[in-house]
Amino acid sequence: MDNLDSISAAWCHTLLSEHIAMYDEMLLSGDPEKVVPEYAGATAIYQSLDREGQVALLQLLKVVSVDTASQLLGNLDGSSYISGIEADFSVKYDGVDVTGYLQDSFLGTVEDEGYFPKRRLEL
């Protein structure tokens, strides 16, 4: 499943590097009075934190991102179930059925690539 490893690496990089950096920049530079209402309160709080607090919040965003992606991939794999959904999903990539491997591959990449270091995250 070499293709699946490269897909998982791409998902991890996009979710846990690119998107977290985008949120950091948006929350740091956004004017709480001008951002969309959904971000106004979070922007003001984020900007009131010192850098250590901001990094802790970014780490939480990573955990939530991994948990959400893992749940969705588990639903597609059939290892996690959604209330009210009875049929199985089938996922193919480049013509190869990858159903049943998505969640484990993603979580393995998260662990192998060190997206959650044992020490505090440094930006």
Rank of each mutant, 00 (worst) to 15 (best):
N3I: 10
S79C: 07
S65I: 00
D112Y: 06
F116Y: 12
D50I: 03
Y46T: 08
Y101H: 15
E18C: 14
P117R: 13
T14C: 11
V66N: 03
A56M: 01
R119A: 09
G78K: 05
Y101D: 14
D5P: 04
L49Y: 06
G95A: 00
L76Q: 01
P117C: 08
L102H: 07
I45D: 07
V64Y: 00
M1Y: 12
E25Q: 13
C12S: 11
P32D: 01
K92D: 14
G108F: 02
D77L: 05
M1P: 09
D67T: 06
I85E: 04
D97T: 08
S80D: 06
S8W: 07
L60R: 01
K34W: 11
M26W: 13
E86R: 07
S83R: 10
E18S: 15
S48K: 01
V110F: 02
A56H: 04
A56D: 02
Q59P: 00
A9T: 15
L121M: 10
V35I: 15
Q71I: 03
Y93T: 09
S48Q: 08
S90M: 13
Q71C: 00
V64F: 02
L76I: 04
T68C: 01
V66Q: 00
T43K: 10
Y39K: 09
K92G: 10
G74I: 03
G84T: 02
E38Y: 07
L4R: 13
R120P: 14
N75W: 06
Y23V: 11
E113I: 07
T14I: 13
D104R: 09
R119M: 12
T68D: 02
S17C: 15
T43R: 08
F106I: 07
L16D: 00
L4H: 14
G108E: 02
F89D: 08
R120L: 09
M1Q: 11
Y46F: 15
E18V: 15
A10C: 12
V66S: 04
G74E: 02
D31L: 12
M22H: 15
L58W: 01
T99H: 05
Q103R: 14
P117W: 11
D94H: 04
A40N: 10
E86A: 09
S48A: 11
A40D: 11
Y46S: 06
K62W: 01
Q54D: 02
A69F: 01
P32R: 02
L57V: 03
M26D: 12
V91E: 11
V96G: 07
L58K: 01
E33P: 06
L76W: 05
A87D: 06
D88V: 03
L61C: 00
S80L: 10
A87I: 04
E122F: 08
E18P: 05
S17V: 15
G100H: 11
E38S: 09
L73W: 01
V64L: 06
S83Q: 07
A40L: 12
E86N: 09
R51F: 07
E86C: 07
E111D: 07
D94C: 05
S70F: 02
M1E: 05
T14V: 14
E122L: 11
V55Y: 02
